Computed example of a mutant assay.
Amino acid sequence: MLYQPSSVVSGSSVPPLPRPQLAEARRVRAAELFGQGRSNAEIVGMVGVHAESVRRWRRAWEDGGAQALRRRPAPGRRPKLDDARVEEVRAALERGAQAHGFEADLWTLDRVGLVVERVTGVPLSRATVWRLLTGRLGWSL
């Protein structure tokens, strides 16, 4: 079953949630519905996920409550840029390459890396710039 956005949010000025936050929002909503005594079948229809996901979530909820359905921090090293810094970078990049003194309005990994360092003071490798662009910023190259 494909997830269909809520009609409450569709057409509004609320930006869509990034995928991890959307998934967590579904699990939290399911926890609320578990607490109301709703059946798994009802929750599948209301949240828009596969029945097996709801069964798995219910087991976790029964064992650990709503907290068991919350998103956990990713294992491993913390990102060099926190979410606020990533948003600063996004705003800077959306102004275009020429706004940062480049001759053509074309982004390259090296140019993005320079802008990231200017905006945040954090130097990034080309590979990290690539992951920033395609992962956290959601841009396609």
Rank of each mutant, 00 (worst) to 15 (best):
M1W: 14
L2V: 15
Y3W: 13
S6P: 00
S7M: 04
S10M: 08
S12V: 09
P16V: 10
L17S: 03
P18Q: 05
R19Q: 10
Q21M: 08
L22C: 04
E24P: 06
A25M: 09
R27K: 14
R29C: 04
A31F: 08
E32Q: 10
E32C: 08
Q36I: 03
N40M: 01
A41W: 08
G45V: 10
M46R: 07
G48Y: 07
E52Q: 02
R55C: 03
R56S: 08
R58C: 03
R58D: 05
G64I: 10
G65Y: 09
G65W: 11
G65L: 04
A66I: 04
A68W: 08
A68R: 04
R70M: 09
R71N: 05
R72F: 09
R72W: 11
P73R: 14
P75T: 12
G76L: 07
R77C: 10
R77T: 15
R78T: 12
V86P: 00
R90Y: 07
L93I: 00
E94T: 04
Q98H: 01
E103M: 08
D105N: 13
L106A: 15
L106V: 15
T108R: 14
T108L: 13
L109W: 10
V119H: 05
P123S: 12
P123R: 03
A127G: 13
G135H: 12
L137H: 09
G138K: 02
